[in-house]
Design a binder for these strands. Sequence first.
DNA 1: CGCCTATTTGATAGCCGTCAACCGGAGTGG
DNA 2: CCACTCCGGTTGACGGCTATCAAATAGGCG
Lengths: 244, 244
Amino acid sequence: MAELSLAPLVRKLGNHVHLDECDQAAILQLPFTLRSAAPLSYLVREGDAAGACAVLLSGYAFRSKTTETGARQIVSIHIPGEALDLQHLFLDCADHNVQALAEARVALIPRAALRELVMANPNIAHAVAVSNQVESSIFREWLLNVGRRDARQRLAHLMCELATRLEQQEIASSSTLVLPMTQEQLADATGLTSVHVNRTLMSLEKDGLISRSKRAVSFPDWEGLRSIAGFSDLYLHLGQQKAA
Amino acid sequence: MAELSLAPLVRKLGNHVHLDECDQAAILQLPFTLRSAAPLSYLVREGDAAGACAVLLSGYAFRSKTTETGARQIVSIHIPGEALDLQHLFLDCADHNVQALAEARVALIPRAALRELVMANPNIAHAVAVSNQVESSIFREWLLNVGRRDARQRLAHLMCELATRLEQQEIASSSTLVLPMTQEQLADATGLTSVHVNRTLMSLEKDGLISRSKRAVSFPDWEGLRSIAGFSDLYLHLGQQKAA
DNA sequence: CGCCTATTTGATAGCCGTCAACCGGAGTGG
DNA sequence: CCACTCCGGTTGACGGCTATCAAATAGGCG
């Protein structure tokens, strides 16, 4: 079960830009230390100076920000293979928190080593840049989601996105999504409250759009859910296979 | 009045990363064609193939996405010096629209020329990467804004951010903000409706937090506004002056 | 078995959306 | 010069989606 190599990172970067064997080997040869993270433990804290870059190997993680008054917004959810703080290659100070969702395992790659690799290999630099741009694109879609969709649409859209991303990384099929998020965390990701998330999920289930068992969600009517959400995977830029 | 050089871009990139004279000259020598854009005209349309990269020289621009049902969300607002579609250096297909706000003037830089410069000059590459990361950081803050703040806070925060960014680019002092946005556009940026934006702006004005005259807003009580908004400029990463 | 957290449910309130009308300034054409 | 038009801003009434508060239930774990 345990992934002990950076293979998920290779897969993720390769999703957007073609990496030849040489590129792949270079990534796999990056030095890293393994770290296990308990649920809700912090991987990065707002205000931290930039340290090593963390890549998620297994489990899930999320980023969040809070207002002065303590309200929390989850701004992204990460699945294995994704880099959790590539921004720290470029920014000196963290502007948000990164926490593990459930048990997670991360590879800590020394900032210098990653930088050297990126400097030395334009193709990988390009892959990293594309990966960052895709992340920005997801931020934009979340902004649309939180700003302009109602509760049903927001939750449906979030589930569609996660199912699609997990399927692409071959972590889960699109028919079932095992998401170890509490309803309160779903609320923080969608700009709702946990109470309303609860009612909305039950409503979606009553309508046959999802089916739940513990934290696992399956999609008996994927097309219906996609339609409710207004979900289109264009913003995930999945198909892009292009050299530098 | 008319800026005919790429100086605003130099200034913008130099905000985050120190650029020596050589770097600056290289940017200023980039080939470009000038284009004027009428209010609301499209600079990029969702679905467009990537073309030249546009840098805003004067005026304002914004990016927006719409839901299937036609609701619109403005996901960012751009001021002179900012690149409007750097993501097209990396992505093949636009996932959102970019439009001019009021009369704008943009420099269109051929994709290939910009790419070559970035490839050849690691310091500039770094500046571009930092600039992209700052943009991501702003997306995250907007997500928090739209997801977790009420109408007063959202509008106050938006105004604080724009005033701060304009001041940094030395386009306006922080005491007055000339923002040629309709209230409907403000609504689209904050996830509200134009009617509610109107009431909220009037409420802020009644409380002496802002003062309005046409589309110009001034801040008689900047500290009060900042406090209402819970605004902190950390996420703009202004001070970072660091070589690659 | 008891504790703790997460989920579920109900009642109530409020922020904000919706609909509709009116106002006001800028531009246009007669 | 003035009427006309149009767009954006302003205002009011009303309704609904979602938040809030509170409590009960269920599930996991030592």
